[in-house]
Amino acid sequence: MFKNLITESTAKSPWLFHINSGSCNGCDIELVAVLTPRYDAERFGFKLAGSPRHADIVVVSGPLTQQSLPRTLRAISQVPEPRCIVTIGSCPQSGNVFKGSYSVMAPLSKYVHVDVAVAGCTPKPEAIMDGLVQATEILKEKRKAWLEAKKNGLKDGPKAETEQEVPAAEDVPASGEEVQQ
């Protein structure tokens, strides 16, 4: 019963962990704007978590530079399942204008399953908020599936087909040779 209470409450307070993977700071500033009183995402329970282990939603901005990619993936893998990955801006989805650079490893979807992609450069805070609200919906679904799986004795939860393992940081190619224009 106590567990149910916890699950129900966590559904209403999805905490965010923000990873800047080499962003120009445009998207980061807009994400901060989402948390200010004017947009007030805390109405929905969103709150920036200091540690990936406390988070439910990972927000990634930036084009995944070569230096930041292993760290980004490590941080993502530390977020407990069920988690939801949101990309903001064009950068993590495609590399934006930086794609083709030797040090840009975008898109993020090459390495992990991205649940919500907010387009824009930068997206408006309203658009980010839309994306985050969508993410909570997805999170709810995922939680349900997890509870179901736990009941059936699957400790590691359901593995949806779309769900990719987060590659270990060492397995990630060290240079941009993989990146094609």
Partner: peptide
């Protein structure tokens, strides 16, 4: 119009596109 959100791989991720 700033509502540009892609939810799924394939067609809908192309809707972020």
């Amino acid at each position: 119009d700033y509502h540009m959100i892609g939810l799924k791989e394939g067609d809908l991720l192309v809707s972020g596109t």
